[in-house]
């Protein structure tokens, strides 16, 4: 599960994580549940239908399959699969029951969305016998869900138990229980994407507390658009050393040094230019100090922190591959693969 405050890039991270896992040979289902078509935009492919569509396939067998989960399609599929309600499905549709269930009845929508992902997590390669055979391999080694944002994630993930609490028996109850069991098992990990800004960091801390309280297993904190970790960005080590130990150097020193250095590369050190450059340094350093305090706050969570630098040219398939590489280098895909393999040998519930 990949969550995060809106606007922090959780779709990008989810897509890159799926790519990273597929790059290591896993068959990965990448699912989104918010009708945003974020996956197709990230991979620059046509909008995804509510069925599973291969997006990326590697020669070594690794694969990313995309799925834009649609509540209505999921309900009709579900009815078809478990109740064989060919005709009743159509009647339900005409009576507005499908609309009721997927848009009006709060919560049912989330159950359907997560239920669809749950179904995919249990499906086995030999689909025809999937209800009888628990020996054939699982259809997916890993599932990456671009989950709802931090503000909604607790509610989204507990919807199984909410529904189980409402329906004291019957198939909905059973479905709610199963979903809840999967979500609170170690097979599920929740990664939180954040920026080093006050509000996203606060929401991350709140969400981790909430999710831990719900008994969910946390994964990594992914710091997106990080300036600190790559060591390449300004102020880099040498500049910081040069600026002195303090967060903001004595501005006069900077002015003097630039005024002396710029003419050596043919740039006239006009006072306005020099002052402007020094102010940029000061503002940047101030922002970086602020980011450092946010990073410190995240470190208190005692979760692995993974960083992804800002990519100025926006997100496209190349950028995704680059981020996937960074996630793999930082161990995120490795841990996931280990769990995914563990799941594969686990047998069915």
């Amino acid at each position: 599960m990949v969550t995060g405050k809106g606007g922090t890039g959780k779709t990008t991270v989810a897509a890159a994580l799926a790519l990273a896992l597929a790059g290591r040979g896993a068959r990965v289902l990448l699912a989104e549940v918010e009708d945003r078509q974020g996956i197709s935009q990230a991979f620059d492919v046509p909008p995804l239908p509510p069925t599973e569509v291969p997006i990326v396939s590697y020669d070594h067998g690794g694969q990313v399959v995309g799925l834009a989960v649609d509540a209505k399609a999921a309900l009709l599929e579900y009815l078809q699969l478990f109740y064989r309600l060919g005709r009743a499905g159509g009647v339900l549709e005409r009576f507005g029951a499908i609309d009721f269930a997927t848009t009006i009845a709060p919560g049912v929508r989330d159950v359907l969305l997560i239920g669809r992902v749950y179904e995919a997590s249990r499906r086995r390669v030999d689909a025809k016998h999937h209800r009888h055979s628990d020996t054939s391999p699982l259809a997916y080694d890993a599932i990456v869900l671009d989950a709802p944002p931090t503000g909604r994630i607790g509610r989204f993930l507990t919807v199984g138990s909410e529904v189980a609490g409402l329906a004291r028996m019957g198939p909905i109850r059973a479905q709610g229980d199963s979903v809840n069991e999967l979500l609170t098992s170690p097979a599920t990990r929740i990664h939180v994407v954040t920026l080093l800004e006050e509000m996203p960091v606060q929401e991350t801390i709140d969400a981790v507390a909430e999710l831990r309280g719900l008994g969910m297993a946390m994964g990594a904190i992914v710091v997106n658009q990080a300036r600190l970790a790559d060591g390449e960005d300004f102020p880099n080590a040498s500049a910081r050393a040069w600026a002195g130990a303090g967060a903001v150097a004595d501005l006069t020193d900077w002015v003097d040094t630039l005024t002396a250095d710029l003419p050596t590369v043919g740039i006239e050190p006009k006072p306005a230019l020099v002052t402007g450059l020094v102010e940029q340094v000061r503002d940047h350093a101030a922002r970086e100090d602020l980011e450092r305090t946010h990073l410190d706050a995240l470190q208190q969570l005692e979760l692995p922190i993974v960083s992804v630098p800002a990519l100025l040219d926006g997100i496209d398939p190349d950028a995704l591959r680059e981020i996937a590489g960074l996630l793999t280098d930082q161990g995120m895909a490795g841990r996931m693969t280990a769990r995914a393999t563990g799941r594969g040998t686990g047998g069915s519930r």
């Binding site: 109740y83 009743a88 005409r94 009576f95 029951a97 004291r168 019957g170 909905i172 109850r173």
Partner: peptide
């Protein structure tokens, strides 16, 4: 007939109590 189907389906899916 439609209503019968809908009611039956609802009962099946939701469970009578819910």
């Amino acid at each position: 007939v439609g209503i019968g189907l809908v009611s039956k389906t609802l009962t099946t899916v939701l469970g009578g109590e819910m």
